[in-house]
């Protein structure tokens, strides 16, 4: 079994430093399927936790960068769930039920503030990184980076376009151009398509941003600023998560609050649980990233 070709998957800096001796070792080693998997995992590890850059032993910056990317992925998973709760403010029955008790009203305010602050912190941290990456890509005429950087915007525009198109045609279905039994499945299919489209778009877009960040030469000062923003975003996510928990439990125990919503309690509990679990998992990922980043930053400072 040949595994030398897997070396192409390692980062350029790693190959510059280790490729020759690694090849020499592989020529002597009895290669098995385990070796294949091990070399593959080694390539992933070398990208995720780079120990080298530009042939020199570095690199705290790369570790802080990894932490920042973890927070970005955490926020991308957290935000849709948080926004779902946030958007309930536009539903009057929910707002009325929330205002029935001061504790739920305050908890809800914290959800809104947490979600908004997390968004602003991610934007504040992301803009300098994007600016620096684009500037170095234009200067170095790196077309691949520019295409990758444009991908999230193109995907979002495509998703908006498809969403707008579906919204345009669905009311026609409701106005008698299809029989009533068809409307339910059609709306369900449309919702499924939109869900897949936005989820796939968000994943692909975030992956593109990750690649741009990893492949660009961005200074340590910018990543330190971004790490501060990532800390702020993570704190905001944790606050929003705690407030969502309190808000949901509050609604459950405020007399008459759930009844005033006029929806099935089981469905409501299921939806709330799903949102809380999603927020919890992704806020946890962000906390993990921030802890790693701060530990690395303080070690570097020492």
């Amino acid at each position: 079994m040949k595994v030398e070709w897997l070396l192409r998957l390692y980062p350029r800096a790693w190959r510059g430093r280790y490729e020759d001796e690694f090849r020499a070792l592989l020529e002597q080693h009895h290669v098995t399927v385990v070796t294949f998997l091990d070399v593959l995992l080694g390539a992933l590890d070398a990208h995720l936790f780079p120990q080298l850059e530009a042939g020199r032993i570095l690199n705290m910056t790369a570790r802080i960068r990894t932490a920042v990317i973890m927070v970005l992925w955490g926020w991308v998973g957290f935000y849709p769930a948080g926004h779902h709760v946030y958007s309930l403010m536009f539903s009057s029955p929910f707002m009325a039920a929330t205002q029935m008790n001061p504790a739920t009203a305050i908890a809800y305010t914290f959800v809104v503030v947490g979600v908004m602050v997390s968004f602003l912190a991610v934007a504040a941290g992301g803009i300098p990184v994007a600016w620096s990456a684009l500037a170095s890509a234009i200067k170095g005429r790196r077309i691949g980076i520019l295409i990758l950087a444009a991908l999230p915007i193109l995907l979002m525009l495509a998703a908006w376009e498809v969403t707008a198109w579906l919204v345009r045609i669905l009311p026609l279905v409701g106005r008698g151009q299809a029989t009533l039994p068809e409307i339910g499945p059609i709306r369900l299919t449309a919702a499924g398509i939109l869900g897949l489209l936005w989820t796939g778009g968000a994943l692909a877009g975030t992956f593109a941003i990750t690649l741009v960040t990893v492949k660009s030469s961005i200074g340590e000062r910018i990543f330190r600023w971004t790490l501060n923003c990532a800390v702020a975003a993570t704190l905001a996510m944790v606050v929003a998560l705690g407030a969502t928990l309190l808000w949901g439990l509050g609604l459950r125990y405020v007399p008459g609050a759930l009844r005033s919503l006029n929806v099935s309690e089981a469905n409501l509990v299921a939806a709330w649980t799903r949102v809380v679990v999603q927020m919890g998992l992704f806020a946890g990922l962000s906390v993990w990233g921030v802890v790693r980043g701060l530990r690395e930053g303080s070690r570097h400072a020492a």
Partner: peptide, 9 residues
């Protein structure tokens, strides 16, 4: 080899 060089680095 992948593990060896991960640790060496």
């Amino acid at each position: 080899p992948g593990t060896l060089y991960g640790a060496l680095a």
